[in-house]
């Protein structure tokens, strides 16, 4: 009994802290998102080349940024789980994976929507889009592996191992995709310089999306901790009944 509370001690402190932080982060995300959207859609000029479609960038770039940041966060959490056996690290990794996959998907979707007027087609095998696509596959692998294993503690550790393997291979994948891209379609550079008038809305949107992610991540972590508590209580209840039955039989 006592050991169970000991194990939950850390998450308990986290629950208190996150309950206090969550409203502030959520409010910050909402305010910045509103301001960022205003800047992106009303207070910034259309691009002289891309026209109004440039505004997709204000969604696309923050999503692409988050797709990488969240994978790094998962890798860091996985390291924390495997090396320090920190119980919160696994909760963090588990909560972050679907969010990361969602932002990666949004990055692909907005990239494709932006590509239609720019390239005349929804999908171009551009080096960066291809890398993001493979990153999306890595997220799917993490989610699928975790859901395929019944033993939760084993699932946590195995998923953590996969995340660390992924983060080790990711630079090699990025490098190989860049190499492949220059090999097949040399010198198509879409990375035009960012106009100063775009910088502020981009920055605001990037911060707003990051706050949005952390708000959702904290909320998902809280849900996961509550789910685990319910599960632990249920297991105890079952074990308790078993014990009563055993005593009754003797």
């Amino acid at each position: 009994m006592q050991t169970l509370t000991q194990r939950l001690a850390n998450p308990t402190r986290f629950m208190e802290l996150s309950a206090r932080l969550l409203p502030w982060i959520s409010a910050g995300a909402v305010v910045l998102l509103a301001y960022g959207l205003y800047l992106a859609f009303f207070a910034s000029p259309a691009d002289y080349q891309q026209g109004e479609t440039v505004r997709i960038m204000y969604i696309h770039v923050p999503c692409a940024w988050l797709s990488m940041m969240v994978y790094a966060l998962i890798a860091l959490s996985s390291f924390g789980l495997l090396v320090f056996r920190h119980p919160l690290a696994d909760v963090s990794a588990k909560a972050a994976a679907p969010l990361g996959a969602a932002f990666t998907f949004l990055a692909l979707l907005t990239g494709s929507l932006w590509g239609k007027p720019m390239w005349g087609t929804y999908w171009v095998w551009d080096a960066r889009l291809t890398s993001v696509l493979i990153l999306f596959f890595l997220y799917l692998g993490l989610i699928a592996l975790r859901s395929a294993l019944e033993d939760e503690s084993a699932a946590s550790k195995l998923t953590a191992i996969l995340a660390l393997v992924g983060v080790t291979i990711l630079p090699i994948i990025k490098f190989s995709v860049d190499w492949w891209n220059t090999l097949h379609q040399p010198s198509t550079d879409f990375t035009s310089t960012v106009d100063p008038s775009m910088r502020l809305p981009l920055l605001v949107m990037a911060i707003a999306f990051t706050l949005l992610f952390f708000a959702m991540h904290l909320k998902a972590m809280r849900n996961e901790i509550l789910r685990r508590r319910v599960k632990a209580l249920r297991t105890q209840a079952v074990a308790g009944r078993d014990r009563l039955a055993a005593h009754g039989a003797e």
Partner: peptide, 29 residues
């Protein structure tokens, strides 16, 4: 990783194929 999972083969493909990208690219190139 997938040793104890049901339908391990499909999951294995999903996990491993993205990791093969660099080998594929440089092998072909």
């Amino acid at each position: 990783l997938t040793m104890k999972t049901r339908r391990g083969g499909l999951l294995l493909a999903l996990i491993v194929l993205p990791l093969y990208v660099p080998t594929l690219i440089f092998g072909i190139s």
